[in-house]
Design a protein around this nucleic acid. Sequence first.
DNA 1: GTTAGCACTCTCGCTCGTTGAGTGCTAACG
DNA 2: CGTTAGCACTCAACGAGCGAGAGTGCTAAC
Lengths: 338, 338
Amino acid sequence: MREAGVDARKRRILQAIIEDYVLTALPVGSRTISRKYETSLSSATIRNEMSDLEEMGYLAQPHVSAGRVPSHKAYRLYVDGLLQNGFAVNDDAKGFFTSQIRQMEDVVTSAAHAIAELTHYTAVVMMPKQLEQRISCLQLVPMPRGAALLVIVTDTGAIRDTVIKVSDRLDSDALFAISRLLTERLAGRTLQEVQEMLGVYARMDGPDARVLEGIASLAAQMEKQSAQDTVIIGGSHNILSYPEYSDVEKARAFLTALEKKDQLTRLLSHHEAPFMVHIGGESGIPDMQDCAIVTAGYQVGKGHRGAIGVIGPARMPYLQVLSTLGAVSEALTELLGE
Amino acid sequence: MREAGVDARKRRILQAIIEDYVLTALPVGSRTISRKYETSLSSATIRNEMSDLEEMGYLAQPHVSAGRVPSHKAYRLYVDGLLQNGFAVNDDAKGFFTSQIRQMEDVVTSAAHAIAELTHYTAVVMMPKQLEQRISCLQLVPMPRGAALLVIVTDTGAIRDTVIKVSDRLDSDALFAISRLLTERLAGRTLQEVQEMLGVYARMDGPDARVLEGIASLAAQMEKQSAQDTVIIGGSHNILSYPEYSDVEKARAFLTALEKKDQLTRLLSHHEAPFMVHIGGESGIPDMQDCAIVTAGYQVGKGHRGAIGVIGPARMPYLQVLSTLGAVSEALTELLGE
DNA sequence: GTTAGCACTCTCGCTCGTTGAGTGCTAACG
DNA sequence: CGTTAGCACTCAACGAGCGAGAGTGCTAAC
């Protein structure tokens, strides 16, 4: 056994192979490298190097007389290099949000669509959970026919509303008075506290029982929805463009796995570094064994963190994807920062 | 040339062929019919009848020694029969909504998902346009950090909100006073009128300019969104389950055509009869030449009409689909009726 | 260490029988 | 006259066999 190091030349060759394969999706041969990338070396030399790289586990041959295909280990090396050396974010991508932003949900969905559009991959965006939201304001807005719209706003700026029935004797002034009273009593409490308090009030069974009930159910809903991370998916059928998924069965398995968002949630919610790349089995999602999942974190307010990402075949232009994600993540951090 | 009528026996045979083909997606031969459906007739007799039916354009042969496949004309005949004879709605489907309904949008999306789930096809639901909505109430809800949530409610029960910045000197009482004033001035006006009126106010450039601006933009947005029919799509990748779309290219074309919702909108917005079935080219959508689109209308309030539907290969269990759509349409009419 | 040359391997695409399903036609039957 | 049995015929699907081409590993020379 000879030396086990990956010297600079091997690295260059490996990179060339990866980049060619990302472009063509075809096994790449020694001649291709010798002519297109390392013109100073002959194909025979490349062959020797490739043979070494194969032995080290960076390359694989679909069959003996085909070219080489980069292994997941190769992508890993390549990506680690990118992450270390850094890369420029793609500023074009930053202006891609057309806004029309209503609230967090809207930002997040439009981010998912933007990423999918920009990268032509499947995009995932995690909306971070917001523990311990405190009520900031409660308001009843009159609606036609004895109904009212109950709006709850929390200190983090989350808004949720629901339509409830109220006595039709209550005009807008009365509703405002109630709103005021409720806000006074409930402002500053966490969603959980509110639910507990209302459990007590509810027994009184006054004329406002329906209102209180509405608040309780809305608070419960908000808490449930905010206690768990939510993942939004965009461009799910972009995957069909790639030869890796020309097999319909595989495509279907992929799309079905996407539906079950819990696995993705698990992956995205433990997001630490600014960028992460899960190649192949590293993601732990069985139906995405051949996929790479590239993710970037973003900051929302103080302390809360979310993540955005892209899912596609392991053969992926990592540099480009990373720089796009970087840009969107920055835009998102800015947008949600305040 | 012999007689051109489709007698009862031909009809029965045709129906058998359709039903078998819907099940198997395989060309059906004379022997199959003779053994599984018309046991009193020999395969030779069936062959003669099939030959007639082919001449009349109801059947086609993929190649000379394959069985027969029903033509679009055959489906048309079959469906017309179903529509004339009537069918029972599938009551199981009616209870499928788990509610959690916030407002119209929610009803409509959950309907789309329910239909997709129930039929295993791609579901489309049209939210009808609502011309001439009149403002019923305007309300500013205080939010942290000098922001406010502006909520507009119309007489049809549509709700829209947006976050705007306001002077942070305005407390909840002040906001209520403004809300009251605005409601007084604007209630009963159409969205269009409101926009016109605000054009005048805006020139005054008072401290509330931002509020008025917010109202105007929200009204514009509501009007834009309600003036055109909106189509929601659910279960778009169900199509991948069908052998007709085992070709990825076809699947991709289909999904891309789905994205361009305008063609579907055109189809759904001219919905007259309670049920309609567009087979093959009848839909006028090029990328859905081999599809059938089954739609059902529903009633929302007085006069407004929407439509729900299912898109899949022309080979479709029409009876089942129609009865499911019937049920959902009824449920929807009930839910949105009041 | 690099390179030219060469034998070798294996996929891909092609052709060519073979098989089997299903038809159309004809002649016989009730 | 409608129905049926029988039979020849057609054609897709499948698999085997073959040649071409791409790409390799190895060896020997530079």
